[in-house]
Write a protein that binds this DNA or RNA. Sequence first.
DNA 1: ATAAACGTAACTAAAATGGTTACGTATTAA
DNA 2: TTAATACGTAACCATTTTAGTTACGTTTAT
Lengths: 136, 136
Amino acid sequence: MTSSSRFSMAVHIMTALAFMGEKMTSEVLSNTVNTNPVVIRRLLGELARAGLVRAERGKSGGFSLARSAKSISLLDIFRAVMSDTELVPLHENPEYRKCAVSCKVRGALCVHLDRAQNVYERELKKVMLADIEKTM
Amino acid sequence: MTSSSRFSMAVHIMTALAFMGEKMTSEVLSNTVNTNPVVIRRLLGELARAGLVRAERGKSGGFSLARSAKSISLLDIFRAVMSDTELVPLHENPEYRKCAVSCKVRGALCVHLDRAQNVYERELKKVMLADIEKTM
DNA sequence: ATAAACGTAACTAAAATGGTTACGTATTAA
DNA sequence: TTAATACGTAACCATTTTAGTTACGTTTAT
């Protein structure tokens, strides 16, 4: 799979913001994650568009939570940075028209994958950023 | 994420075997999936090691289900071809020792990701290959 | 013996991913 | 008002992953 680790990284960033409780720059955040500030800013851009963080530009700018850690779920973060990602994707090889299985199997499977992803997301929804923060 | 589409492809193959109900060669299977026979054989190798299919070599060889479609769940197939794959992986950037969040956030997150993956897999376990086959 | 089919190694092409540099824009503070 | 600082984003690169492909050895039915 190696899917991407964007979600995990986003949770890391959000937890740092919650834990520190103050405005942080992408530079400082990049140190705790051990990556490049641009990577952080890109993720935070998506989190900002989802209304989870606030970005302030210019001197003495930086990022801060837009809402309380108690009100932000892991699902909120997941949706913000992984919105158009299927947990388990369908294969996209072209159909073999003559074969009923080839034509119909994706549709049949999709129903069940969607249901499974729903329960996965429902589980993420139960966990709040504050729960993660608490264990730091 | 783009994880791989190995699972979806494996379900496609297994459904074809169930639906046709007879021995099939990797050549024939590769046509219904629209890919290369070697790709099929590699997947079937993992499915065979998991005890889900039987492989016969030599002339008039081919693949067939090792168990009834009613007894094979999507989880069996998932485990066979995605065993060491996290649905959502943790980021692996090195820790920043001075920072508690950097050191602990993965552990805290991991607990919840594992639980979510468990409910995902439990959902896959409810669906049998025979259920998929029926809708063809 | 020969043909047919699996098993697997080795290689390639394409895509995804994370990281990096560079630079424009916004904002504050001196 | 100017200099410094920080975000926003485009463009590019290196690495890894993925699927596909060729090739060939091994097995087995006829």
